[in-house]
Structure formats: structure tokens, C-alpha cells
Design a protein around this nucleic acid. Structure first.
Lengths: 337, 337
DNA sequence: TTGTATGCGTTATCAC
DNA sequence: GTGATAACGCATACAA
């Protein structure tokens, strides 16, 4: 009676080689598919590996190839951003793409301008490439990564042609939404938008400005609020907007919109009767609001998938698109009727 | 004139050893601190390493020690959970703890009951330990990890004593909030809570039930809604609750609460005049709501830090607490006045 | 206290 | 097409 093979634990190419009477280089080739190898030996090895439930040691492979098969994703930890589901949903998308390509995802955090964790990740060679999930106007992280030479990709739009970018065209999206609301009869369009340091806020404002500049009345500074962050700043801007008699408020993102709504509510101002409200970025809370809020919708998870796949393509030396622009939708709701 | 040392790139222990006229094992010891080593050689090596900006190759170390210095964090990707900032904030906390211990964080996703990505992570030995960010009543992931033998920790409470747990005491928190609201004059306390499959929802309901059972009127089934998920289910429950003449609604979490508020708003029901509302879990949106909503507050980031640190302790063989309970606060707001 | 030799499990470069 | 053998960079048991 033969020995039970199942008692032998197979943990390395050596083990397989011994069991099959081959050399470990042959086994390696059979599994990787690289190099010349006989069709039947290949099949035999693969079959054996399958039933032996052998899993190659990826660490060893990493050492040999100096590749980690890890993608790095950099999340910002600035207080208000932590509340935004954007990063989480995006991350799920990246994980999906990574998983489909046998990569894993390592996350790291930058707090304000402190990119030390990112530096460690790069210097320790823990990842093959990196995704920056938001772009600042003067982005330390991007500047560092550029110097470091590691493949990376930014979510956001920049005039820097050397950056690989994945983004929605915020500028034209906001332009379209603004035009549309004008065409629906609104005239004095106010805007409340976040920090100027975030590239996305600049793009959004540009979209708005582009439309308003071409109107006879032009941009009315009294109802334009950029760089608002705190709840009190938002409250003040809403008060100012109402005093100026605007008929529509455009909110830079969902968090701002949520706070604008809260303030309007507190002031007993009805939507859409007394004023219309729309947001440049959507979220569940705006959908569930009463009334539901008109907003730009983007498929964030898909954005993550595409970002992940693009980065992997770049890492693998495959052709990759330097700038990928995702679609958006304007979801018209009761808040602007 | 001597050669410029700065021209030589130091990439391995061998390089350092050669430059310093030592053997690489001595250098290794000087850096790791393990084994016996002379105080001055140690200092000399460390100083040299510092100015040479040498970074050890962690992959090689991993291979040699069969340790990855990576923590795995499992995020659920069920549609509604993706919107909850909980996981994101928690993740930031874990990253902080990891970073402080020279660990990195690898994230992976489970969708419903599909734990294949988690299995790959474990089988490929990409991490030294794992954190499950939510616990199901019948948790496949936890069961798998138990079988696999890898160190892991769950966020959530379970009667399974073999699980390392980190959590808030949801049951007593909800108990306290419920009692408090009763003592404030409310009598018919309705509850709207999410899926029974999530351990946390069971705990929350228990806290509520524990208080109500001891009341003369007992638990009134007509105003208890468990297992609600969809917006329509929530709308229906709110309608039922109003018909039954409840005077307070307890919401299982922030998302549910948000939807309950939306429905109440649509029905022109005033808070707190017509009905009081509170939530078993807080979020920015509830704070910004008008009126602000009474809710249980927990420090989620701190939860992440503690989870990360506990797992690292367990991995390192340090003493660790089998069950860590974090504090919570009851934030009384206008919605229950 | 320090040096030598070996192992970790792959991939890759040679011969054959 | 296959098999030795040398990297990859570090840790560690053992020898000195």
C-alpha cells in the first residue's frame, strides 16, 4: 500500500519538484508560464499543484523579482474629509481592480501636509505604485512621488501633463449644471464652495464662473463664497445669500450642501418655493433629503476600479491612458423645480 | 583625496558591512538590537546607516522571519455599508496604530458572504493578523479565520469567548439612552433597526428591549421595527409608528435615522414638538440636522487605534486584552427636548 | 563581542 | 525542454 500523499504538506517548489521527480526550475516555469516548457509536464505540474492545494510564497517571489504586487492608496485624514464616503467607496473600487489582477491594496494616511507615512511606504518598497485620492493645488505628495520615480496616479485634474490622471470633468459638469439651472429660470445663482487648496474646488468654481461671466450681469461677488469650511462660515454665507435675494444656491459638495440645508431649514426657508438648491456632488443624504436635492452624480466605485486598473497597467508596462475622464450625470430633483 | 562616500549607494547590509569593515551579521544585530553587540560598534553602525540613508529591505526581512509586518483590515462592501463613514474613520485609526509600530495596513473586501478575497490574503500570507470590522451573527469570515489559525480580532461583541473583541457596549449604551428618554417623559418608544444578521443590531435591540420589558406596558410590537433596510421599509415603519401614536422614535443608526427624518419631514411632522427622535449611532449629518439629533457618540477613530494596537500586541506575543470595551457618550440635542 | 555559514522560496541565467 | 546554480537581502544558529 502506497503512502498517503495527503499527509505530505507541500509548501515550496522544492517539495513539488521532489514529489514529481522534476527540478524546481521546471516547476517554476510550469507555473509561471515563462520560458520554454513541455506541454504535458506543464499540465502534470499544474494538476498536482491544484490537488495539493499548494500556494506559492509571494514574499519570496517579491524578493526575487523586486515586485510587491501591492498597490498603495493614500487617504487624507483631514477632519472633514474623514466623513466623506467618497474615499471609502473609491477604495472598494480599487480593491476590486486589484483583486482581479492578483494585487493587494495597502492604505496609508496623510494628515494635512504630513506625508511621512507615504514616504515610509515608498522607501520601504512596500508597494509597486501609488494612487493619490485627492489632489491639492500645491500637492506635496505628488511632488514627492514625482521625485521618487515610483509609478503613481492622481484622482483629480491637473495641468501638469506628467501626471497620470483619472477624474470626472468637474469643470464642464459644473458648467452644465449651472447653465441648466439658469435655463430653468434662475437668475441670481449663489455658490458656496470649499477650500481653494483642493484642486477639485477650483475646477468646480471655474465651471460656475465660466457660465456666469458670459451673462449680462456677470459674476456677483456678494453671492459667491469660496473657501468656506466651518459650519459657522456656511451659516454666514447662507445669511448673506438670502439677504442678497439669490434664487438658487449651488453647493460645492454634499457636506456643504447638508449644512446649507440645515441653515435654510433653521431660517424657515422653503425649498424649492423660496430658493432652489443643488449640489456639485451627490450622496445618500442628499437623496433622502426632503425634498431630494438636484446634484451631479458620479460613479465613485467605478472611478476606483479604473484608477486601480490604470495603475496596474502602468506598472506592468502596458499602454495606459494618461488622462481618463469619467462620465457624470445630472440628477434633477425636486429641490430645483 | 578620498573617494566621496556619497557616491556609493548603500542598499544592503553587505554594503554597510564592507564600508565599515564588519560582517553583515554584526550590522544586522546593530540595527535589530537582537543578540549581543558592542555598544560602540552599534553606535557606529547606526550613525553610518543614518547618514547613508539606508533603508532595510523589508521584503527580505519578511522572507527570513516569515513575518510581513502587515495588518489586514476587512471591509464589508454591502451596498448600504459603503456609505457609512464608520469604516473609513476606523481604518484611519488602525493606520495610525500600525504606523506607530512600523506596520502597514492591507485592506480587503468581503461582499455579502463571499470571503474569497479574505481567503487569498490569508493563504498568500500577506498579513500577520486580521481585523474584521463588523461581525455578523453567523460570521463566515470569523469562522474561517478561526480555522486558519491566523491571529485576528473582531470589532463587535460576541458570546464566543475565543474571539478577541473590541467594541462599545452597545447593549448597555442603548439601554441607558432608552431609560433616559423614558425618564424625560416619553412613554411609547418606537424603534427602527437594521438587519438581524448584524450582531450590533441585535445588541442594540436588546438594550432597548431590556428597558421596555420592565415597564408595565411591556414591549409594544406595533412600534418595533427590526430588519428594516430599504427606504420604503423605513417609510412604512414611520407611517405605522405615527398611526400608533408613539412619542419617540429610536433609530438603529445614522443612515436609518436620516431616512426616518426625511419621512417625518415629508409628513410635515415637527421634531421635537410632535415626536422626539434619537439615534443609536451618531454622524455629522445628524449633528447638522435641524434640529440636531440626540445620539450615542463613540470615538470611532480611537476604536481603530485600539483595535490596531491590540492586534499587534497579540501578534507580538505581548499580553493583550481579550475584550476591550470603549466608552460612549449620550449627546442630548434638541430633537428630544 | 564578532564572523561564518546556511536558510527563507522564489526567479533568472546559464549550461546541457 | 530541463536541470543545476546563483542571485534577492536579511536573520540566525553556531563557531571562533
Amino acid at each position: 500500500m502506497k503512502e498517503e500523499k495527503s499527509e505530505i504538506v507541500i509548501t515550496s517548489l522544492d517539495d513539488i519538484a521532489r514529489e514529481l521527480g522534476l527540478s524546481k526550475s521546471t516547476v517554476s516555469r510550469a507555473l509561471s508560464g515563462k520560458g520554454r516548457i513541455g506541454a504535458q509536464t506543464k499540465a502534470r505540474v499544474r494538476q498536482y499543484v491544484k490537488k495539493a492545494e499548494y500556494k506559492p510564497n509571494l514574499i519570496a517571489r517579491s524578493l526575487a523579482q523586486s515586485k510587491t504586487y501591492n498597490l498603495g492608496v493614500v487617504l487624507p485624514a483631514d477632519s472633514d474629509l474623514a466623513e466623506k464616503p467618497f474615499f471609502q467607496v473609491f477604495l472598494l473600487g480599487v480593491c476590486e481592480a486589484a483583486s482581479a489582477n492578483d494585487y493587494d491594496v495597502v492604505v496609508t494616511v496623510v494628515v494635512e501636509k504630513d506625508i511621512s507615512a507615504l514616504k515610509n511606504l515608498v522607501r520601504n518598497k512596500k508597494v509597486d505604485g501609488i494612487i493619490l485620492t485627492r489632489l491639492l493645488v500645491h500637492d506635496y505628495a505628488a511632488a514627492y512621488l514625482k521625485r521618487s520615480g515610483i509609478p503613481f496616479l492622481v484622482v483629480g485634474s491637473s495641468s501638469d501633463e506628467s501626471l497620470v490622471q483619472v477624474d470626472t470633468d468637474h469643470e464642464s459638469a459644473c458648467e452644465n449644471l449651472t447653465s441648466l439651472l439658469l435655463s430653468m429660470g434662475n437668475r441670481r445663482m449663489a455658490v458656496v464652495i470649499g477650500s481653494d487648496e483642493h484642486a477639485v474646488n477650483i475646477s468646480r468654481y471655474r465651471g460656475y464662473a465660466k457660465v456666469m461671466e458670459n451673462r449680462p450681469e456677470g459674476i456677483c461677488r456678494e453671492i459667491v463664497f469660496q473657501n468656506v469650511g466651518s459650519k459657522t462660515a456656511i451659516d454666514k454665507s447662507v445669511e448673506g445669500i438670502m439677504k442678497e435675494g439669490a434664487d438658487c444656491i449651488l453647493c460645492g459638495d454634499d457636506i456643504i450642501c447638508s449644512q446649507v440645508l440645515s441653515k435654510l431649514n433653521a431660517m424657515n426657508i422653503r425649498i424649492p418655493e423660496d430658493i432652489r438648491v443643488a449640489s456639485f456632488y451627490d450622496s445618500a443624504h442628499l437623496k433622502y433629503n426632503n425634498p431630494p436635492i438636484t446634484a451631479l452624480e458620479i460613479d465613485v466605485k467605478e472611478l476606483g476600479v479604473i484608477a486601480g486598473q490604470s495603475l496596474i497597467d502602468k506598472i506592468s508596462g502596458k499602454p495606459f491612458t494618461r488622462r481618463t475622464i469619467l462620465n457624470y450625470q445630472i440628477a434633477l430633483k425636486k429641490s430645483t423645480q
